[in-house]
Design a protein around this nucleic acid. Sequence first.
DNA 1: GTCTATATCCAGATAGAC
DNA 2: GTCTATCTGGATATAGAC
Lengths: 207, 207
Amino acid sequence: MSERPIDRRRAETRREILAAAWELCHQEGLAGLSLRELARRVGMRAPSLYSYFASKDAIYDAMFAEGQIELGEHMSFLPDDDLTREDFRAGAQAFFEFCTSDPVRYQLLFQRTLPGFEPSPETYALATDRLERLETQLASAGVSHRRHLDLWTAILTGLTSQQISNDPGGDRWARLLDDVVDLFCDHAGVPPTEPSKNPRTTTRSRK
Amino acid sequence: MSERPIDRRRAETRREILAAAWELCHQEGLAGLSLRELARRVGMRAPSLYSYFASKDAIYDAMFAEGQIELGEHMSFLPDDDLTREDFRAGAQAFFEFCTSDPVRYQLLFQRTLPGFEPSPETYALATDRLERLETQLASAGVSHRRHLDLWTAILTGLTSQQISNDPGGDRWARLLDDVVDLFCDHAGVPPTEPSKNPRTTTRSRK
DNA sequence: GTCTATATCCAGATAGAC
DNA sequence: GTCTATCTGGATATAGAC
């Protein structure tokens, strides 16, 4: 289970390559990733990359996995049980911020735009695990219909993708977030937070 | 103003090339458009395409324009004045169907995923004209805040993109459409349609 | 005017020397 | 592990036949 020095070094080089790949994609677009240029940036020739990744798609796959893990960490502040309306608001804000802060990452994780690329089963499992956790969280707030889960994801990705496509760097859709969360919560039956109490320490009326 | 035969022929060949380009993109993905393969499919060699389009991006631009015009036609059944809640429902259904029926076209029109490609000003004007018409239509139903316009587009593109990305060919998000339209209309103050009257022939209570 | 042929450049990927 | 050399093939652009 412990890492040999050779594996540590190898993992470090992989990380270095991935960091350069992200930077390159930020500059040239997700599909603009070129192995020659990527290799140049880490002081290699293109064929040497194949010692670390089996193919260009394997690099995309590792980036996809990295993005999913980052998203999981970014959302990990949310409790698994007894979500309040405040948690919905904070969760929406966090997801929105995560996505809009890196449109290229958003494109890789949530849009299917790279011809021929599909995440590997192991990597895709990261995405489904995350969705299952969300399902659990919503259910803990009494939102247990798949319709409501689907509505929640549609609302969030809708605001997010509009913000990215039509007002990058701005807040035209960001400002709608709180209203939309309230709209959803009213619809899905998540009770309003009592303004006089602290939602994180109050006993909930729901059992 | 009238077309010379030579221009007619040229326009026809352009249309033929565009049709083949759409077919190729449907098969290989939007970014998978190859000029060699495109030329092969219309019985040409690649360089001959340059007699009809100045560049590959010019082909994308023409496809973008074509898509915008198709969308305009697809939505043209909607009146410009006095939209009812029924019109919102029908409009949402029509937009959703238009988008999900051709994910590649949706990607070209609404997502910014082709590195380096931007529609020309003339072509982009088709998109802004369409959005202005939508603005007018919403205003005619008393929905005149930009917040509501933005919410409407976010909701529609959210449901649409989720359907395309996560349940292509299915109806998982399509089934949410009517509920969401009602949610939006309640929020934006579009009055419910009286069930006993025909919304297209009834005198509206709103002036 | 439109075509074929060709030139240049760049892409992902592999073989094999070291 | 990293390199050079090379394969296949796409994108752009030009020359010149017809």
